[in-house]
Design a protein around this nucleic acid. Structure first.
Lengths: 224, 224
DNA sequence: CGTGGCTTTGACACCCCTCAAGCTTTGTGG
DNA sequence: CCACAAAGCTTGAGGGGTGTCAAAGCCACG
């Protein structure tokens, strides 16, 4: 059964299912639903009842949060092999954010009861989940620290650095607006900064794309 | 054995040990170390090897993080019944922050191997840990959103609101500096804001203490 | 080839940081 | 009990980084 083994291979890439035996993996695959969405569609919306956990097989997903006054921030970008919409894992009631595709994306899904049943059968999953949440927490703390103490220019540089590392590419497909929401600033300020860097030859910016040319210059922190 | 039952009673208050049977609790209490620190002493320092998990029995603990350029932020305040220094729970190597007492504090401690052994014996602990981390993550996200989108005055008001709810008191014992590090601003700005509120009769501010008088006014968000 | 969504650019304002100085409270030792 | 020092707090002046708004350019797509 080719397709079945393919699925298992994908799952193994995900930290959540590390160290599980074949029978557990089989259970997990069996319980998984699948879905595919075009660019710009949503998997879940902020405030909705959180009854599904998602695993990104391929594509890119943007997780965003809306503040009461209407401004939006990007919580994170998820790439292939990552989980998103993790709330059901830890018993949250509603999604605190929205998950939108930033490119055609394929996912596995499990619903809330299923994932709890699976964790019950394979406690290792819960331990793995802990680690994933822990990593997410520590990255968010890092960004929080930056947001509180660094200037916009530094934050944008760090964001690009993190993204290019995560996506394993020097060409990042995101708009000024996206980058602004990711770093807690405005698209105007981002635009000015990118142009400055472009003039220095550190990047090549196009509409909806930023190609990193001289990462050494770009990522050497100007600090204050 | 009076003292033993007292310890168990404390533990039950903590989400981490919810739903465990007597024998499991016994194991946990047995494995726990105890410590007490005066105000201003530290339990662990940022960067140190993370080999202990802490449970605050009584007192108050400030968790702070230092940025490379030397400025400091307050990640959170922990009150009685809360865990802190959770890194060992999810396999982190070093503490990403420091834990200092903000008042005389008593704690239980478990070291890394112990807590993993306990989780192995009682998988319920891992599930509970997931929930705790999840809550922490969602609070941090909330604060991140605020930091990115709200003005200082609103952030300070929210911080006071959250703290007074958590500590279950209207008199908060913290300095302007602490409040500034908690909201990502400077003590000067905090001082000005508090004075304004004081003149309105919304709070009574003293050295090292803020007494909330009119929470309705204070917490009614000025939004933008 | 027009329309709509990104992006750039300028002008302007203002929030808030920075620095400096002085004040008040608390604690300590004579 | 007073004097002094240290720590925390207040207040003012000044400047700069960024947000805000407006307008125009540019690119992609139908």
């Amino acid at each position: 059964m080719r397709i079945y083994e393919e699925k298992v291979a994908f799952l193994k890439k995900c930290g959540l299912f590390k160290g599980l035996d074949a029978s557990a993996l089989a259970r997990i695959v069996e319980a998984a639903g699948m879905a595919q969405k075009e660019k710009g569609e949503v998997f879940f919306r902020q405030g909705e009842k959180a009854d599904q956990l998602f695993f990104l097989i391929e594509g890119k997903v943007k997780v965003t949060q809306l503040s009461p006054d209407g401004s939006q921030i990007v919580v994170r970008y998820a790439g292939p092999g990552e989980l998103f919409g993790c709330v059901p894992l830890f018993g949250g009631i509603a999604y605190p954010a929205s998950g939108t595709t930033a490119a055609v994306s394929k996912v596995f899904t499990w619903d809330r009861e299923t994932i709890w049943k699976l964790m019950d059968l394979s406690p290792k999953i819960a331990l793995n989940a802990l680690q994933i949440l822990g990593d997410e927490l520590s990255e968010l703390r890092q960004r929080y620290l930056e947001l509180a103490t660094e200037r916009v220019e530094v934050r944008v540089s760090r964001a690009l650095s993190r993204l290019s590392k995560k996506m394993k590419t020097s060409e990042l497909l995101l708009s000024r607006q996206d980058l602004a929401e990711l770093t807690g600033t405005t698209l105007y300020t981002v635009s000015r900064i990118l142009n400055r860097w472009q003039k220095n030859g550190w990047i090549a910016a196009k509409r909806g794309s930023i190609q990193i040319k001289k990462s050494s210059k770009l990522f050497s922190v100007p600090e204050k």
